[in-house]
Each structure stands twice: as C-alpha cells, then as structure tokens.
C-alpha cells in the first residue's frame, strides 16, 4: 500500500497548512514586536549621530555609545537643528533623522523626484558641526554611517556600520582604530574642490599623520569593503559639497 504521506492530495494539503501556520506565525511575531523594534532602531540612529559628533563613552580601545537612557536628553542638547533639503526647499524637521537613505537613493530612479537630503546641525563646546548620513555597498551587503564635519568640510568624527561584512576584516569598519583615522581628514582638496576620502593600501602613512592627503589607511584584507566605503563617502557627501565650497568663497 502507498504510504499516506506520498499521496499528492496529502502533499498539497500539508503544504497549504504549513504556509498558513508559518505565515501566520511570522506575521504575528513581526507585527507584535514592530513597535519595540522601531523604537530600538530610532535610539540606535540617535546614538550613531551622537557618536559621529564625538558624544560617546569610548574607553581606551573600544567604540561605545552613550547609554540608552541618556540618548534622548543628549540628542536634544547637542543636535540643535535637523534640516531636510529638497531642491530649493530647506525646512527644519525633528524627524529628519528617520529619513531612510536607502529609499531616497532608490526614489531618484523616478526622474521627477527631488531627493531629500538630511543635514543635522550639532553644537558642542560652541562649535558647530554638520552631520550627514551616508549609505553604500560593502562586500556582502549594505554599509552606512554618519559623518560629522566642520565648516571647512574637515571630518570631526565618523560612525560606520555594516549589515554583514566579514568578521575580523570588513566588519572592522566600526572599530575605533579605523574610524578614528578619519578625524581631522579633509574632504576638499587643496584647491577647494570636493575630493572625498580614499581608503588606501599604499599611502605609506599607517599612522595617518598627513591629514591633507584625502586618504586613510585601509584595513588589511578588506579591499572591497574599503573601496565601497570610499565610494559611499564620495557619492553621498558630494551633494553637500557645494554648501561648504560656498562658505569658503
């Protein structure tokens, strides 16, 4: 006799029940936890922005965010304004940090769409810093981050993160030894043209003493992540460069 689990009808019914159970289970979990997950993500974004500004609890060698409970207070204290730039329009919006860069990048496929560019104005110890979110592609998946600059477009601090870069290699972009290298690095070249920051394997400057060369030292063994990171800095900060160049003239 044929086993009952080999019958076509049984297979189909089983498949249908399976889909319903799995789909239901996933949808239930996803929707019931959605609020908490979004809240966590918002806190993380604020932590990232503050980190780039230099508001963090770094110890001797590790990158540490300020703790969750302090985030809300610190964010309102240090981030004075959040701007959304869209075409000729500039408006302040307290939710600008929630703009999804991925969606904005995708939306320009539509020729009529003017991309929204968020810009956060921070103020620490009397100095104004401009913080910009960036997003690009690494070796495996998305990489993103925040760059904090002064009015000369000199980097004041960065925070990079990644979705799935190789542990111990590309994943090190969120380690201090890499991020700290960017501090003080110039984004404009000597003629005040936007140049970005290259991640270089051969600049003979591992200590990164030369801050004017538009280069930082690469992480060994993560060429593609490094190239992706440099490309991300270049293409995502270029739109803002016109503002800083205008300040210079």
């Amino acid at each position: 006799m044929e086993k009952k689990t080999d019958k076509n009808s049984y297979t189909i019914i089983f498949a249908i029940i399976m889909v319903i159970i799995v789909g239901g289970l996933l949808a239930l979990t996803a929707s019931s936890l959605k609020g908490k997950i979004t809240a966590n993500k918002e806190i993380e974004k604020k932590q990232n922005i503050l980190y780039a500004m230099g508001i963090n609890e770094n110890d001797a060698s590790n990158a540490k965010f300020i703790t969750k409970d302090k985030v809300a207070v610190a964010f309102t204290k240090y981030i004075k304004k959040q701007l959304i730039i869209q075409g000729d329009d500039v408006k302040a919006d307290d939710k600008a940090y929630l703009i999804d860069i991925k969606k904005e990048q995708a939306a320009i496929k539509n020729a009529n769409y003017k991309r929204r560019f968020p810009l956060f104005l921070g103020k620490k110890e009397g100095k104004i810093s401009y913080i910009v979110p960036i997003r690009g592609k690494g070796l495996w998946d998305a990489i993103w981050g925040f760059v904090s600059m002064d009015k000369n477009m000199v980097v004041q601090g960065v925070y990079f993160d990644h979705k799935g870069e190789t542990a111990g290699l590309g994943a090190n972009i969120n380690q201090r030894f890499f991020m700290d290298d960017f501090i003080g690095e110039h984004l404009l070249d000597k003629n005040n043209k936007f140049k970005g920051i290259a991640v270089s394997k051969s600049n003979n400057d591992p200590k990164n003493n030369d801050k004017l060369d538009n280069e930082v030292d690469a992480i060994a063994g993560s060429t593609i992540t490094g190239d992706g990171l440099a490309a991300m800095i270049y293409s995502e900060l270029a739109p803002y460069a016109s503002y800083f160049i205008a300040l210079k003239n």
Binding site: T5, T11, F14, A15, V22, L25, L33, K36, I37
Partner: peptide, 30 residues
C-alpha cells in the same frame, strides 16, 4: 512522520528559516 517526502526539502528549509527569523525578531525587540 507527517512530512510528505516529495516536498521534504522545502519543509526543512522553511522550518529552519522560520525558527531563525523568529529568534532574530525577538532579539531585535528585547
């Protein structure tokens, strides 16, 4: 004993994937 042999690979993959995704969602929340 209840998995139909014809689609057992799909069923197995889905079981792992569901398990992992649920754990991931729960961790993301808590």
């Amino acid at each position: 004993n209840i998995i139909p042999s014809k689609i057992r690979i799909i069923v197995q993959l889905i079981v792992v994937a569901t398990l992992v995704i649920i754990v991931d969602l729960v961790l993301k929340a808590f």
